[in-house]
Design a protein around this nucleic acid. Structure first.
Lengths: 185, 185
DNA sequence: GGGTTAAAGCAAAGTCTTTGCGTTAGCGCG
DNA sequence: CGCGCTAACGCAAAGACTTTGCTTTAACCC
């Protein structure tokens, strides 16, 4: 797969992107969202603001880009030997991740960004993990729901409650969601 | 309930708020989000930008304020005579509302705003409608789920799919969600 | 190596945001 | 009813951010 004709992906461009992303992550750790600005990020990254504006357009798009990177699944989900416990382990971990203060910020940045690409990518990453778990269950011969069902009955309620309901959902509540899905098989 | 000591709620303040809200709604109809700005809104409303900045802080907060107003439930949900059809009618209407282009913008504005107040209010409005439907079912003596269950199994999947999944959910899919909840009673 | 050109730097112009201070008008009291 | 009080508005200047045209740099490809 060759890069698109006429766009440069390596060398200086790659270094600038890396430096800017690093600068954003650094600054997110030490300052609040409302204190961030393109000139501030650019200074930390050692580039000029116009470079950032030309590549990302706005601060919001840049933050969404960084957030998307952060959401990318790194490792395959833990294999605990059974569908029930695999899903519960994943659900607990996912809840913890997005209900944390930085996690909420990332999702917020994704939703706030212009296109729908970024939000959809976030869901795609989730489904990659869910499918890995379901595939293992299939190999073991366990009965299992499909990925869309898990999305509707587990991922969706978790995300919804974190963002729209007062108070923080507990890990126990997340596990109950799994019990209910599996009970309906 | 008296207004907070030292804040003015009527007279000129109320007129300014109304004018600014109206200006935002007007402009949202004729221009895209990225073309909106505080000075533009202020000009349309016939006030100075500094007034808007002092009252709302940022464009984002102002948009969230307007969006929250828009989400406020106006009428009680239709009474079709049975829980099943009441919930389905509500779900179809809700899906249509938030999957519309302006509807998505409103929710986006709410989530993007600083505090969690605005997003939580949005859910509270939903629950008001759901509870009204469930209360009617209780009066009729119909078995019915509780409001949190409906939130997790209907509202959450609808919102999640609109924002995080590619393609638009269909009204038929929303009705299936209702069938599934009621089947589990 | 050397030409080509995407992407970065620079700087000026334009727009948005903040802030201090004077003015207006709603509210409550006598 | 009129008067004082003061929250909220208007204005304008200062400051910060954003855009843009042009120049320079350095990957990429021959």
């Amino acid at each position: 797969m060759s890069p698109i004709q006429g766009t440069r992906t390596g060398g200086r461009s790659a270094r600038v992107q890396q430096a800017v992303h690093d600068a954003v992550r650094d600054l997110q750790r030490e300052r609040s969202r409302s204190e961030l600005s393109v000139p501030l990020v650019a200074q930390r990254a050692g580039v000029t603001p116009s470079t950032v504006y030309r590549r990302w357009g706005t601060l919001q798009e840049l933050l969404a880009d960084v957030a998307r990177e952060r959401m990318r699944p790194d490792d395959p989900p833990d294999d605990t030997g059974a569908l029930d416990t695999d899903l519960k382990a994943w659900a607990r971990q996912y809840l913890e991740e997005i209900s944390s203060s930085p996690g909420r910020e990332y999702v917020r940045d994704l939703v706030a960004s212009e296109g729908e690409e970024n939000s959809e990518q976030c869901n795609r990453y989730c489904q990659v993990k869910i499918r890995a778990i379901l595939d293992r269950a299939a190999e073991r011969g366990e009965p299992h729901p499909d990925a869309d069902t898990v999305t509707d009955r587990v991922t969706a309620p978790i995300v919804f409650r974190v963002f729209f309901a007062p108070g923080d959902p507990t890990p126990e509540w997340a596990e109950e969601l799994i019990d209910q899905v599996l009970a309906d098989l």
